[in-house]
Amino acid sequence: MIIELELATCSIDMIVNKDWEYYFLEINPVGQFGMISNPCNYFLEKKLAELLLKNHNEK
């Protein structure tokens, strides 16, 4: 779906039930995650930046 929509980045919202079945909710093409990253101390923006730098330096 991401390829068909030609998205370079996005956030995907999904839920999983007690039988481990996944349900797609939505795609956010802007890829907002601040409401999760900061309060939960995930530091997603830092991890993403490190991954981008690593991939850039390997090329």
Rank of each mutant, 00 (worst) to 15 (best):
A49T: 09
K18M: 03
P29S: 06
K59F: 04
C10F: 13
N41E: 15
K46W: 02
L5Y: 05
E26A: 10
P29H: 03
I2G: 12
H56T: 11
Q32M: 12
I12R: 03
P29C: 04
I27M: 08
I27C: 04
K54L: 09
F24W: 12
Q32Y: 09
L5G: 01
K54Y: 14
L52Y: 14
N55K: 15
M35L: 11
A49D: 04
A49R: 08
L52N: 11
L52F: 14
N55G: 04
Y23E: 05
C40F: 11
L48A: 11
K47E: 07
N28Y: 00
N41S: 14
E26C: 01
C40I: 05
L25R: 00
E4Q: 08
I2D: 02
F33A: 11
M1P: 03
E6S: 13
S11R: 15
H56K: 14
I3Y: 11
F33W: 14
E50S: 09
K59H: 09
K59A: 05
F24P: 08
F43P: 00
E50L: 06
K47A: 07
E6A: 10
Y23K: 07
E58T: 07
H56V: 10
E6Q: 12
Y22T: 12
Y42T: 06
L5D: 03
N28V: 00
